[in-house]
């Protein structure tokens, strides 16, 4: 899973390369005396799928809501699609899509009715029927929103989020409550939006597998600071976590050893062995290892050990 991704095939839009879709510098947030964000720096580029990870209370929601224009930051600079979110007008709003996890609104509306209605607010909306097909709700078009299953409801939220052809899409825990197949379909949809239409996606999730699967880059937010940022592979490498090698010796005992250099260990094992090594397994550090490592480092209070990682640019 942590193999490096191929270089993105999307061409950079001419002239737009210099200006990221989301740019934040030194964003802080304080509620009363409590500092929630201690200077967030972010650059998210067009067509990028960017995942924001972090434990509860790390400031993820605050960060995203500042970028969405729903919350006023205490200080720092933010530009989203070229505007300050606190002053975003209707045209700016129309370029942003939002999918939140706890939406239960418009329960009495019918699925197609709701989607068609929300299409009227946008200058160049997607075709509602085609969109229902895209999220697999064609069969539910005439159904009342109230009667949808949890997963169907979320897919309707996704459809509502992209009906206005947003250039930037915020996804908040989008696949909570999805079955594996629906989750897979959803991942394909997000990839398609990003790869084919150049939609920029900011994803917040607790699902590390999802982040690894979808995100071009991941930022880890712990204690109101970005602790690490990079591609999933970079993050895994950067964490000081060691790879684990497991094998079964000739006498049948199971062995496991942690090492910085698993390749060398395997090579040495083979030199000592008389034949194939039973049960040989190399487990590379995963995103989860990196994540836990980051979170624990915060718990230990070893804040200072961040070697230039806090710059998510």
């Amino acid at each position: 899973m942590t193999t490096p991704r191929p270089t993105p095939v999307r061409p950079a839009p001419p002239g737009a390369t210099a200006l990221p879709v989301i740019r934040a510098r030194g964003v802080t947030m304080a509620y009363g005396d409590v500092d929630v964000l201690h200077g967030i720096d972010l650059d998210i580029h067009q067509g990028e799928v960017f995942a924001l990870l972090g434990p509860n209370g790390a400031g993820k929601t605050t960060t995203v809501e500042i970028l969405e224009g729903f919350r006023q930051r205490s200080s720092g600079e933010v530009s989203v699609l070229g505007a300050d979110p606190e002053r975003g007008d209707d045209a700016w709003r129309g370029r942003i899509g939002l999918v939140l996890q706890s939406w239960r609104d418009h329960r009495r509306w019918r699925v197609a009715e709701l989607l068609t209605h929300f299409a009227t607010y946008y200058p160049d909306p997607r075709d509602p029927a085609g969109l229902l097909d895209l999220v697999g709700l064609t069969g539910q078009a005439g159904q009342q929103v109230d009667r949808l299953s949890g997963g169907q409801r979320r897919r309707l939220d996704v459809a509502l989020g992209i009906v206005g052809r947003p250039e930037l899409l915020f996804l908040d825990e989008p696949t909570t409550g999805f079955d594996p197949e629906a989750r897979h379909e959803f991942h394909l949809l997000v990839e398609r939006l990003a790869r084919e239409e150049g939609v920029t996606v900011l994803l917040t999730t607790h699902d590390l597998v999802e982040a690894e699967r979808l995100a071009d880059r991941i930022a880890m937010l712990v204690g109101g600071r970005i602790r690490a940022c990079g591609t999933p592979a970079e993050l895994a490498r950067r964490a000081a976590a060691q790879a684990e090698v497991r094998w079964t010796a000739d006498d049948g005992t199971a062995h496991r050893e942690r090492t910085e250099d698993p390749s060398r260990l395997v090579w040495e094992l083979h030199q000592d062995a008389t034949g194939p090594i039973a049960g040989l397994e190399v487990r590379r550090p995963t995103l989860e290892d990196t994540y836990l490592h980051m979170v624990h480092r915060e718990d230990d209070g070893a804040d200072e050990a961040v070697e230039g990682e806090a710059q998510a640019v």
């Binding site: 699609l81 007008d89 209605h117």
Partner: peptide
């Protein structure tokens, strides 16, 4: 909000609100 700097140029006519509002009210 329109008066504030940093917004984008496209401005939607008030008519759109009325149309969307009446559609919504009817539904």
């Amino acid at each position: 909000v329109n008066g504030a700097p940093g917004g984008t140029k496209r401005s939607r006519p008030t008519r759109t609100y009325w149309r969307a509002g009446f559609l919504r009210g009817g539904i």
